[in-house]
């Protein structure tokens, strides 16, 4: 048993490397807890059952998109009979979820979903916010009041 030291240090190294992901996780302070989503305060029901929305909200959004843009269907009749405006900014954010950061982004970053580029174009900015370098004119007030 003259090699005891060598064997045990080798074993220790082996165990360390095999359990490396665990230590890495501990060091990075990751947790298995799900994302903390801020749920809508006023609404209890989404436009489709919760389970469906969890797994398939992207299909629903694509259907909304195709029907609104290409077939001019701007109202959506939900499973519970309620009708909604087909609008990501006005309905999903405006009526319920408020901001994308506290709902969409939290879950997407938890699930490491990269790529939903909805917000490159659709507005997640609260109404009336002016970006820096703005050159507003008198027509602003007149028009924002009459926009659909």
């Amino acid at each position: 048993m003259r090699d005891r030291l060598l064997i045990f240090s080798g074993l220790a190294l082996f165990v360390f490397f095999v359990t490396w992901p665990v230590w890495h996780g501990v060091a990075a302070r990751t947790s298995a807890a799900g994302p903390k989503l801020e749920l809508p305060k006023l609404e209890k029901n989404c436009v489709a059952p919760r389970e469906y929305m969890r797994t398939s909200h992207m299909s629903l959004l694509i259907n909304w998109r195709e029907n609104a843009v290409r077939n001019n269907q701007l109202r959506y009749r939900a499973y519970n009979g309620k009708t909604y405006d087909v609008s990501l900014s006005r309905t999903c954010l405006g009526q319920c979820h408020g901001t994308r950061e506290k709902f969409c982004d939290r879950c997407h970053s938890y699930a490491a979903v990269s790529g939903p580029y909805c917000w490159n174009c659709h507005n997640d900015i609260p109404k009336g916010v002016t970006t820096p370098g703005a050159t507003s004119s008198g027509v602003v007030a007149k028009l924002t009041g009459s926009a659909p």
């Binding site: 900014s89 006005r90 580029y117 174009c121 507005n123 109404k127 009336g128 970006t131 926009a147």
Partner: peptide, 16 residues
Amino acid sequence: PRPYISHINPDFPTRE
């Protein structure tokens, strides 16, 4: 285009 939009109308999307 977004940095060049003076006043974003939230009811209409921007483009990318």
